[in-house]
Design a binder for these strands. Sequence first.
DNA 1: AAACAATCATTGTATATACATGCATTTTCT
DNA 2: AGAAAATGCATGTATATACAATGATTGTTT
Lengths: 150, 150
Amino acid sequence: MKIEEAIQQKKFRDEYHKAHINVLFTASWIHQQSLKALKPFNISWQQFNILRILRGMYPEPASVKSLTERMIDKMSNASRLVEKLKQKGLVERRSCKFDRRQVDVVITDQGLELLSQASAAMEDQMDLSKSQLSEEQAAQLNDLLDAMRY
Amino acid sequence: MKIEEAIQQKKFRDEYHKAHINVLFTASWIHQQSLKALKPFNISWQQFNILRILRGMYPEPASVKSLTERMIDKMSNASRLVEKLKQKGLVERRSCKFDRRQVDVVITDQGLELLSQASAAMEDQMDLSKSQLSEEQAAQLNDLLDAMRY
DNA sequence: AAACAATCATTGTATATACATGCATTTTCT
DNA sequence: AGAAAATGCATGTATATACAATGATTGTTT
């Protein structure tokens, strides 16, 4: 569905304006799809994102700062998200011995287990785009998005 | 800056996976730019969005439902956003005489005035993409995003 | 017309986001 | 070494989001 119909707006100032709106709308759409996929696992998209980063570094720990740097939404509060994950037993947190200001965050076995199921669900969601775009088109989309961010 | 550097992730499963992340990241980036532009006007991006929709319909009123349908993020609570805007004197709200379940929301003169300044600021932000993408590329980006959403 | 279902908006609750502030620890400067 | 600045994290506050529930009004069915 074209963006014009999706938000019932007939005209845009130009293609740049439309692209801005379109990126925001598509992100919101992806976010909703993700929520559906993650629903059975009782974690938010941001929590999923943190778990993925931690799996990427496993078994090395990550500091809260390094999590923030790697998160897609830099503004979400990694500190509080880690706390939520800890309450669920999905991560562990201990103070870093080399720099006591830092905190070492590590994903637990339970976290790894949940993540493997959750990412399977997310990948199934993502794969639905495959019938819409060729891999070359997806690559082209990536190039355009990268270029858009001045 | 390529997405790989932006979130310090070297590899992705495939271009589809990367595109998903890239859309979300770019939307977050746009959102931050928008926040900067809107800061002097003390309105959130969602409030700005509602004002724009109301201007588009002016002098016709919009129901809360029609606002939700036209909003970029359908899940944000239009009812509460309208209440915020009313408190600031930027919109008026009266019950619809044809259907008393509905509410007629109309942008005020003050709202129109603020919006004209705020949208100028937003357009200045958006125009910075012009040095990064040609209009054809922006159009291509729109086509790919439209296609991505199955 | 009366009963039932559907629609529209609001409100309550839990969580997330934006941003500022505070506190402990480490680094830098003199 | 001691003072000052910077860094890393946590927390407080206001706002926003996700989703369910409520209440009022309108539409539909028989």
